[in-house]
Amino acid sequence: MNRKILDKQAILLNITATDWENAVRICGDLLVQTGKVETTYVEAMIRNIHELGPYILIAPSVAMPHARPEDGVIQEGISVVVLKEEIEFENGKKFKVLIGLAALNSKSHIDILQKVAEVISQAESIDRLKNATRYDEILRLFNEKEEHES
């Protein structure tokens, strides 16, 4: 992928969610609004968590809701939602940041996961994500590495 993984329109900061399902829906709706997925994809993201549990927790305080490409992906990309307060799953695991993933196929899935992993592999980056108050802080985290790769 030689383009930016994240656009400003796909970021929400300081958001209040009532529970994990509401948080995932907010994150998925951003993917719909930015033309990355159809509404069926958001329903599939929620259904997957109901069926499989909170497998979307990928780092401390970070969740990555997603579904299969055939559930309604139009274009690859991500959305980022930073919640005002942490949300807890039934098992007590909490998250404050959601990174919605839309991948067209297994190759784009791996490419996007690599970009996300670069960001969340360091505790400092996770702290920057959790405490972000400006869009450019998040855009820099996800897009700056790509600019140096070209």
Rank of each mutant, 00 (worst) to 15 (best):
E21G: 02
V24Q: 06
V24N: 05
R25F: 02
R25G: 00
C27K: 07
G28M: 09
D29K: 10
L30F: 01
L30T: 01
L31N: 07
L31G: 06
V32H: 05
Q33R: 10
T34K: 07
T34H: 04
G35C: 05
G35V: 04
K36S: 06
K36T: 02
V37N: 02
V37G: 00
E38D: 13
T40E: 14
Y41W: 01
E43F: 01
E43W: 01
A44M: 14
A44Y: 14
M45C: 15
M45W: 13
I46F: 15
R47S: 14
H50Q: 13
E51D: 15
P54I: 09
P54H: 14
Y55I: 14
Y55L: 11
Y55M: 12
L57K: 11
P60Q: 04
S61W: 05
S61V: 04
V62A: 11
V62H: 08
V62E: 12
A63Q: 08
A63G: 15
A63C: 11
A63H: 11
H66Y: 10
A67G: 13
A67T: 08
D71C: 12
D71W: 05
D71N: 15
V73I: 07
I74P: 11
E76H: 14
I78D: 12
V81P: 06
V81M: 02
V82R: 14
V82D: 11
V82E: 09
V82Y: 10
L83M: 13
K84P: 01
E85I: 03
E85H: 14
E85P: 08
I87F: 03
I87M: 04
E88H: 12
E88D: 08
G92I: 09
K93W: 00
K96T: 09
K96L: 09
V97L: 08
L98E: 05
L98Q: 07
G100L: 00
G100Y: 01
G100E: 02
L101G: 14
A102F: 07
A102Y: 06
A103Q: 00
L104D: 06
N105A: 01
S106Q: 13
S106E: 13
S108N: 10
H109W: 07
H109D: 08
